[in-house]
Nucleic acid binder design. Structure first.
Lengths: 238, 238
DNA sequence: GTTTAAATTTGACATAGATCAAGTTTGAAC
DNA sequence: GTTCAAACTTGATCTATGTCAAATTTAAAC
């Protein structure tokens, strides 16, 4: 079980960008890479913005600690949270296709990221086939993760099953980092969860209360423990 | 505007697999590829199953005509539709990571697919760098499409906005094939749409009726025409 | 520690969607 | 064409979630 102190980082070995980042580091010795090709563990404070919706793509990020929310503005100036990223996960890689970020990425709490220049990665890819192959694996893995993520929420409407699916999803995604598959230090507030799930924060609060009353979960401050994983999975499956 | 006769296929030029499929065809002349490396336009009847959930990955498919639904069974034996695929789109590529399909792919109506052997594609990729590069672009495009798809539905709960988002989504995805960005020949029945969106078919029916009464759409048999795209976009955005 | 604003919970009522039931329409098989 | 089952629509009621308001808890700033 790893230390969960907030100053701790995900290990490079557990980072999804490692397969691209490592060969670049090795290549640095033989190829003339500019200094900006890779920045490791850039510290960011709460509400720090990595990039804005519709900025041109320049870098791909991997979360090394903390959490980021991905937001979109709608016409009427409301902010919709359309995704969350946890340590070891990528941010911005879906812009490789359109060359433009299509959401704003904002730090929740003190966090940190590693950053790889797309330009450098691409030109190195021509020289080092290993990078290409790794990039393919990285992208197919990402494709799978997205599919799972989509499946988790599509077709669900009841507040109970949405929250159950959400808890399972974030606990699973953080398991390798936290070392637990039944608990999590909730990095995001009720309002943001409600926004993401399309519920009202009052409704979400009631479901949290009900889950506690029914002995499905235990909440202590920001920490959530699943008391009956089976029942939660059943709820999420509905 | 293209002919929309159901026997027509999406052009290879408009198929997302083309960037991988074409180089393989070219390579066939110089490399010793087995006969099974590529099957073009396999005809499938209604309810034909391409592969089952948890089958090991062997091939990646691209829809050349018709429509496929992606389904998952839950514990209580109900079938959940977790995605649709239209001409030019891929099926099964997200299994590249886990090596196992994680849903069942079923034809809706008479359809057809092209099929590429993953084994052959991978071994050819070592010899022909072009295939690797094209695969990367294919996967990042897919990543983007999935993200858009996710965004379209996450956080939406009202039946109105779900249906509006659904109509826009499928019309957009079929536009290059049908030649229209305001109408579509609906390939899927109300029950399946309701299942996918997590609504009851009665509710969906009521929303369809309301949209027609409010002059937002026109329905003639299976054909749907958007009368006020602006209003539908506004509904979907909420 | 105290103060204070923000986050969360709870209550009362309104409303959208689910459920159950009964039509009506559509289209395939004959 | 006719028949029939499946798909779709509509109506009446019930329930879950939204809405608005107020109370309570939490945690940040001092």
């Amino acid at each position: 079980m790893q230390n969960k102190d907030k100053n701790n980082f995900v290990e490079c070995d557990d980072c999804s960008m490692n397969s691209v980042c490592q060969p670049l580091v090795t290549a640095k010795q033989s190829i003339n890479l500019s200094e900006s090709y890779l920045h490791r563990r850039i510290a960011t404070k709460t509400n720090y913005i990595l990039f804005n919706q519709s900025d041109p793509l320049t870098d791909i990020y991997a979360v090394s600690s903390g959490t980021f929310k991905l937001c979109q503005q709608t016409d009427d100036n409301t902010e919709n949270i359309i995704g969350l990223r946890f340590p070891g996960e990528l941010i911005g890689e879906d812009a490789l296709y359109l060359k433009t970020y299509n959401y704003t990425a904002i730090a929740i709490g003190d966090s940190s990221v590693c950053k790889v220049s797309v330009e450098q990665m691409t030109s190195c890819g021509q020289l080092i086939p290993e990078i290409q192959q790794n990039l393919i694996e990285l992208l197919s893995r990402q494709s799978y993760v997205r599919q799972r993520n989509f499946q988790a929420y599509i077709g669900k409407k009841s507040a109970d099953s949405l929250l159950a699916a959400f808890l399972l999803n974030i606990i699973e995604r953080n398991a390798s980092y936290t070392g637990s598959d039944t608990s999590i230090e909730l990095p995001i507030n009720r309002n943001d969860i409600a926004n993401f799930l399309g519920l009202r924060s009052e409704t979400l609060s009631r479901v949290f209360s009900k889950f506690q009353k029914d002995q499905l979960i235990q909440v202590k401050g920001k920490k959530i423990v699943l008391l009956s994983q089976d029942k939660i999975i059943k709820l999420a499956d509905f």
